[in-house]
Structure formats: C-alpha cells, structure tokens
C-alpha cells in the first residue's frame, strides 16, 4: 500500500512536478509539528490532575427565594445545599468533585426543577435559573413544544416553555487565542420582547446582538467595551445601561432579568470571573 502511495507521488503532470518540492517541504514541516504536538500531548496527559470543579448559581427567577441542592449519583451521599438565593443574586463558587450530579431547585419547599448534569474536572460553571414560578408548581413542568425541542434539539434547543421555570448550565471559560475580554449575553427576562444588546466603548457600538428569550449569544470579543446598552430593536434610546469593567482573557456573562409587562423591571446581573 505504501509503495503504491509512493508510486502515485511520482507525479506525471508538469504542473504537479513543480508542486512536488513544496509538498515534500510541507510534509516534513507537518511531520515535525505533529511529533512535537504528540510529545507535548503525552506529557500533558501524564500530568493531568483531577481538580474539583467550581459551580455557582445565578437566580433570575422572580420568586422569593430558591434553594439548589446537589447530590452525586455515585455513592450514597446525601444532597447538600449548593446555593440559597434571592432573585437577581449570584452565589459564590462551590467546589464539586467531578461526576454526575442530580441538581434540585426548590421554592418554599416545593420542587420546581430536577435534572442530572455532568460536572467536569477543573471546570467552572454557572447554573442559571430562570422563568416564572407558577401558582401551583409541578417538578419539571414542560409544554409539548419544549418537550419536542428537548428531544430533537438536545443541548442546543432553547425553548420558551411557556415561561415556566428552567435551568441551564453555562461554562465560565471559553477557549480563545485572543487576549481580548469576552462577553456572553443572555436574555432571561420572561415575557419581554427580543432585546437589542450592544457593547459600547468610546460612545460607539462595538458589538451588537438581538436576542429573544431565553437565548444566549456566543462569547463575543469585547476589547475596549466599557458599557452595555439594552434597547428595544430599532430604538435609539436604551432601556437599561450598565458600566462594564472587563479583564483580558476572561469571560463575563451578562444576564438580563425582568418580568412580563413591567411586573419586574429589566435588570442586569453580571456574572464576572473570579480569581
């Protein structure tokens, strides 16, 4: 087989003959690069350590207070309180060893949400809780469309779910070769129309995104951004503005919270990276 490949490389067309030295040089360079990467990879693999993950909770569900319990699926450990939070607040990071956990969200003793998540070693996550608590809540209430989207769409599916309670886990580190700070925008104000969000610096818009509930943007490069402006699409006057103090090579998540038809004013909750 190798001989046959080499025979093929004895090129026939004149144009290919000209290409041959270039291909050979490129091949040698690529092999060198590959060997170096494989050696580095083996070294890294051997050195990899299983540090615990860090998990925090953002409470964006207009409710008196929510309690989040975590229970590892392996072993017989009892559930522990991950966070006990009021509306629009953000907990500190809690260390959790890597594994599968059942996360339970309850309000006034009634379970609203229960789901199993994998928590990867050495990673950092924010668990965002959003939606509106119904008068008589049932655990994991879902509309038919939300169920269908969940089945067919998997992790990427974002359903309005009739503004019923939902939770989503966000990774707080995004790989980037850029030095610029990054911002992830997330519209979590149930019943509020799509919002135009703009990262501004020196009085001009640097990046703009229009998001509908309950969608998040990708991590946006935010070099020079000093202010966030949130407006109705097509409207020049912002509804809310928020000063930003961003650090290089970090990811800040901006949650826009609020309630329908002015029941709760729009508010911004910043989930900033911590050392």
């Amino acid at each position: 087989m190798i001989r046959s490949v080499l025979n093929r490389l004895r090129l026939h067309r004149p144009s290919l003959r000209r290409l041959n030295p270039l291909v050979r040089r490129l091949g040698r360079f690529s092999w060198g690069l590959l060997c170096a990467a494989l050696l580095a990879g083996l070294w890294q693999t051997a050195a990899a350590a299983q540090a615990p993950a860090q998990v925090r909770v953002a409470q964006l569900m207009p409710a008196a207070g929510l309690t989040v319990h975590s229970q590892p699926q392996a072993g017989n450990a009892d559930p522990t309180v991950l966070a006990d939070l009021s509306y629009q607040s953000l907990s500190d990071y809690q260390a959790l060893p890597a594994g599968r956990y059942t996360l339970t969200v309850a309000s006034s003793g009634q379970t609203l949400l229960r789901a199993t998540y994998g928590i990867g070693a050495s990673d950092r996550y924010t668990l965002a809780l959003f939606g509106l608590v119904p008068e008589s809540p049932q655990p994991n209430s879902r509309t038919a469309m939300a169920r269908l989207k969940g089945i067919l769409g998997g992790v990427d599916a974002h359903a309005v779910n009739g503004y019923l309670p939902q939770m989503t886990l966000l990774r707080d580190r995004v790989s980037s070769q850029s030095q610029a700070p990054q911002v992830r925008l997330m519209h979590l104000a149930p019943g509020v129309v799509p919002l135009a969000m703009s990262l501004e610096g020196d009085s001009k818009s640097l990046v703009a995104k229009t998001l509908a509930y309950p969608n998040a943007s990708e991590a946006l490069p935010a070099e020079g951004a000093t202010r966030l402006a949130i407006a109705l699409p097509g409207q020049p006057t912002p509804l809310v503005t928020q000063p930003l103090d961003l650090k290089a090579q970090t990811l800040t998540t901006v949650f826009v919270a609020g309630g329908p038809a002015g029941s709760q004013p729009l508010a911004v909750v910043l989930a900033q990276p911590t050392p």
Partner: peptide, 29 residues
C-alpha cells in the same frame, strides 16, 4: 495521510485520558 494521523493522534490522546464524566460535562446525559 497527515490528516488521518493527526485525528487518530487526537483520538488516542483523548482515550488515554479516559474520563467518562467529560462525555457529559456541563450537559444533561
């Protein structure tokens, strides 16, 4: 040829770090 070697290399290095939790890290199984 280069492509296959790089992809197989990546796959093997990942498998050497065998950690099934990573397959569901941050998401619902």
């Amino acid at each position: 040829a280069g492509n296959l070697i790089i992809l197989i290399g990546l796959g093997v290095l990942g498998l050497l770090r065998w950690d099934p939790v990573q397959l569901v890290a941050g998401v619902e199984p």
